[in-house]
Amino acid sequence: MKMLDVTLNGQIQQIPQGSNVRYMLDEMKLGKQAIVYLNGKKLLQKEYDVVLLQPFDELRIIKPLAGG
């Protein structure tokens, strides 16, 4: 399996080539309740399944913390 490097929340990480944003969310055990910035641009939720990650992409993924 070919791997590529991306930066996730400041840390370099290797992921399989062809991975989408959803892959990263699954790795982080996050569902769709997450905020994803790809190279500084906030993605829409509908893009999580379709945007393929490229080498050296910079991802910032935030879980919005509510309460109870």
Binding site: L43, L44, Q45, P64, L65
Partner: peptide, 19 residues
């Protein structure tokens, strides 16, 4: 009371989210 209004971070969610 912490259950009397919504939590600020949810405003960060993308525009097409349920939130």
């Amino acid at each position: 009371d912490h259950q009397s209004s919504e939590n600020d971070p949810l405003l960060m969610m993308p525009e097409d989210s349920q939130e």
